[in-house]
Structures are given as structure tokens and as C-alpha cells.
Design a protein around this nucleic acid. Structure first.
Length: 272
DNA sequence: ATGGCATATCCTATATGA
């Protein structure tokens, strides 16, 4: 099973890219961020024609998330991150797909910092940490993936000095991410590629894509049940190289779902 | 310190992104 996350930066503009990518890479599940469209603007017909069913949560101009599944229907679990009923930004979706609980998120950018936007980012992160605590030890497999807007370490950016004041690299931001991982989540890309610089985002400025001046900010986190199934992880860089591409590239994991039944208390308690 | 570019909208101007 291949699960991917892709910040499309505008679903209307990026639909051709999305369809080419789905056709070529055939992810079983795709989490999308930054739809930048109202619910009624989501191109569900084209996505169905490509063989996917979907749930989505739009918003005018900004944010917006979706979960696509090939050949099966995502069963929606929640449409908001718990902890703040007044939060109206479309940044979170949660669904069950083929026995896996899929959490799709678009964590706030937080710039400029300091300021109210950075405060909102940290508050959102605290809500995520609280919610993730209830999922890490679940007896079912869980993946929390999306655009975290966090550069976890200086190794995850082409030049740490270039974004020293950026909200994505602040100590408070990184501390939140480390506290999340500290619950026991596996950062799939870094787990399988500990020595390799890997980026998922290259901004549109100064030919950063051409020079591979990128950031790793799209992450896929696996809970204890799902982690043993992890086989491969990577970035579909070719999508970023397309004409009029999003500034993010799809980032994915490949899981051996036949192993999912083996884990858990019952299996570990049984004799060899 | 700023801006480079891209997207969306109440579109020859502004807000947001990372």
C-alpha cells in the first residue's frame, strides 16, 4: 500500500499535475493540502474518473484538505482537529481507509514571527500533540501525514542560515515536532534515509528548484501498529520539475499491509 | 533587511505563502 501527501498549492490550477501524478504513481491513498477552493470547487468528477473516491474540506482562497483513495471510499472520522471550536480554518481531515486510519493535516505556516500567526501555529501544534497522544498506542494502524510547515533539523534545509528567522525553523516549532515524535511516532522518510538530504519543497524564488535548494517540511508519521509495515519512503521529485508545478513534491511511504495483522498485543503475546 | 515568484479574490491591488 502506497500512501502519499501532496501540497498542491491550488487544486484548480494543479488538477492536470495531480491527474498525471495519480496516473503514473498510482498511490492507494493521497492526502492533499492547500486546495485554495470552496467545497463546490473541488474537481470530484475528474478525480472519480481517475479511479479515486475522496472526501474534502474546502475554504475560500486558502487552506483546504482532501483524502483520496483508489478503489475504495474513505470513511470520514473527523473534519476538525479537536481543541478549539472557534477555529474555522480547513486544515484537518481524518478517515479510515482499508483498515488504516489516515490523518491529513496542513499545519499553519506561522510567519511572520513573532506575532499572532506564530501563536496560532504553536497553539495548533499543541492541539495536534494532544490528539496524537490518543492515537500513538491505538490498536489499529495510524498515519498522520501532510504539510507540517516544520523543518525538523538543520539537516533538512539546504542552508540553515537562509531561514534563521523563519517560523518553520524556530526552536519552539522544532520542540513541538520533537515532542510529537517523542510519543513514539516514526518519521518515515528520515527513519529509512538517516544520512541523505531529502527535500519536499523548493520555493519559486531564485531558481531554488534548479539548484536543489529545498526544505523537508512534508512528513508521514506512523504509529506503533503501522511502523513494522514500513518498506520504502521517498519523494516524487519529477512532479516538482513539471511546468507550472506546485512548490511541493508528493512525498510517500510504501507499506506491507499483509504485516498489519501480525502486530498487536495478541500476536506479541503468542508463543513462537 | 528585502525581495525574489505564485495563487486566489471583492482582480491595474492586496493577502498569503514558506
Amino acid at each position: 500500500m502506497k500512501i502519499a501527501t501532496y501540497n498542491v498549492n491550488g487544486i484548480k490550477t494543479r488538477l492536470p499535475h495531480l491527474l498525471r501524478w495519480l496516473e503514473r504513481e498510482q498511490p492507494d491513498i493521497a492526502c492533499l493540502q492547500e486546495l485554495k477552493a470552496l467545497d463546490e470547487g473541488f474537481p470530484i468528477d475528474a478525480i472519480r474518473a481517475a479511479g479515486y473516491q475522496a472526501i474534502w474540506k474546502g475554504q475560500r482562497s486558502w487552506n483546504g484538505v482532501a483524502i483520496l483513495a483508489r478503489g475504495s471510499e474513505p470513511l470520514e472520522i473527523r473534519r476538525t482537529l479537536p481543541g478549539d471550536d472557534a477555529d474555522e480554518q480547513s486544515r484537518y481531515l481524518e478517515a479510515a481507509v482499508d483498515g488504516v486510519m489516515v490523518c491529513c493535516l496542513y499545519l499553519p505556516n506561522g510567519n511572520p514571527q513573532p506575532g499572532p500567526k506564530f501563536d496560532y501555529k504553536l497553539a495548533w501544534f499543541e492541539r495536534l500533540i494532544t490528539h496524537a497522544r490518543t492515537l500513538i498506542d491505538a490498536d489499529h494502524p495510524v498515519i498522520i501525514c501532510g504539510d507540517y510547515n516544520v523543518v525538523p533539523t538543520d539537516f533538512d534545509i539546504y542552508n540553515p542560515r537562509s531561514g534563521k528567522r523563519d517560523a518553520l525553523l524556530q526552536p519552539q516549532t522544532r520542540a513541538c515536532y520533537q515532542r510529537l515524535l517523542g510519543q513514539g511516532w516514526i518519521d518515515a522518510i528520515r527513519h529509512l534515509h538517516p544520512e541523505e538530504p531529502i527535500y519536499t519543497f523548493w520555493d519559486y524564488f531564485r531558481q531554488h528548484w534548479e539548484h536543489n535548494s529545498g526544505l523537508r517540511i512534508d512528513h508521514l508519521l506512523l504509529n506503533r501498529q503501522l511502523a513494522p509495515a514500513l518498506q520504502r519512503a521517498g519523494v516524487d521529485r519529477w512532479v516538482r520539475g513539471e511546468e507550472k508545478a506546485s512548490d511541493h513534491a508528493p512525498t510517500w511511504v510504501e507499506l506491507d499491509v499483509s504485516r498489519l495483522g501480525e502486530a498487536g498485543p495478541a500476536a506479541s503475546a503468542s508463543p513462537p
